[in-house]
Simulated scan of single mutants.
Amino acid sequence: MFLTRRLFLGGLTLSLINLTSYPYKSLANSQLSTKPVQEFYTASIVSSLLDPLLNPYKCPTKLRVINAAVATASPVDVIVNGKRVLQNVDFRQASKYVDVTPGNIEVLFVRSGTSGTIAHRNFTGAPNSAYTVAVTGTLQGPSGQPLFNQSPFVIPEDLTQPNPGKFKGRWYRFSETSAVIDFRISKSSSPNVDETRITDLTPKTAIPYPELTVGTYNFNPVLPDQFDPLINNAFNPPITVEVANQQVPEGVIFDVIATGNGLGQAPNSLLLTTASTQTAPPDANGCYQIVQ
Rank of each mutant, 00 (worst) to 15 (best):
V135G: 00
K96S: 05
N55K: 10
L54C: 10
V214L: 01
A179E: 09
V248S: 02
A234E: 08
F123E: 15
P221V: 04
E157Y: 05
L14I: 10
T4S: 14
R6K: 05
L50G: 08
P164T: 15
Y288H: 08
F235S: 14
G286L: 05
L16V: 13
L27K: 14
K187F: 11
Q150W: 12
L223T: 04
R111N: 13
P224H: 10
V98N: 09
T20S: 05
F235I: 01
R173D: 08
F148Y: 11
L270I: 09
N88M: 03
V252H: 03
T277I: 14
S112C: 15
S74V: 02
N88W: 01
F167H: 11
Q140I: 07
A179V: 04
T240V: 12
F2V: 06
I118L: 12
D283H: 01
Q38V: 09
N81R: 13
P152M: 00
S21C: 04
Q161L: 12
S33Y: 06
I45W: 01
A244W: 07
P208H: 00
Y97V: 06
F153Q: 04
P238G: 04
A234K: 10
P282M: 12
I155P: 00
P210Y: 02
G125F: 01
C287H: 04
L263K: 12
P191A: 03
P36C: 09
P60S: 14
N236E: 14
S21N: 03
I257M: 02
Q38Y: 02
S15P: 02
Q265N: 13
I45C: 00
S115C: 11
K204R: 09
G286C: 06
N104Y: 14
E106G: 03
N218S: 11
N192P: 07
R111V: 07
R111I: 12
R84G: 01
Q38A: 07
F109V: 15
Q150E: 12
P237F: 09
Q87M: 11
S269M: 06
I155Q: 03
V243R: 08
P229A: 06
F123M: 03
I257C: 01
S44G: 09
Y131S: 01
S15H: 06
V80G: 12
G169T: 02
N192R: 05
G125A: 00
I105G: 05
V65S: 00
A73L: 04
A179G: 03
S112H: 08
S115V: 10
S175L: 00
S112G: 06
G137M: 13
V243E: 13
Q292L: 05
Q226T: 15
S112P: 07
R184L: 04
T42L: 02
T259Q: 07
V222A: 10
Y288Q: 14
K166F: 04
I17V: 08
D182Q: 13
A244F: 11
G251Q: 12
V65G: 01
S26V: 14
G10S: 13
T273F: 00
R92D: 08
V89A: 05
T4P: 09
N67S: 13
A71W: 09
D228N: 10
T132W: 02
A126Y: 09
F153H: 00
F2C: 11
A284I: 01
G82T: 07
P282W: 05
Q246C: 06
L63M: 09
Q93C: 12
P229I: 04
E39F: 06
Q278A: 03
Q31M: 03
G113P: 11
G264M: 06
S95T: 08
P249T: 14
P229Y: 02
K58C: 08
G11H: 09
V193T: 05
K166V: 00
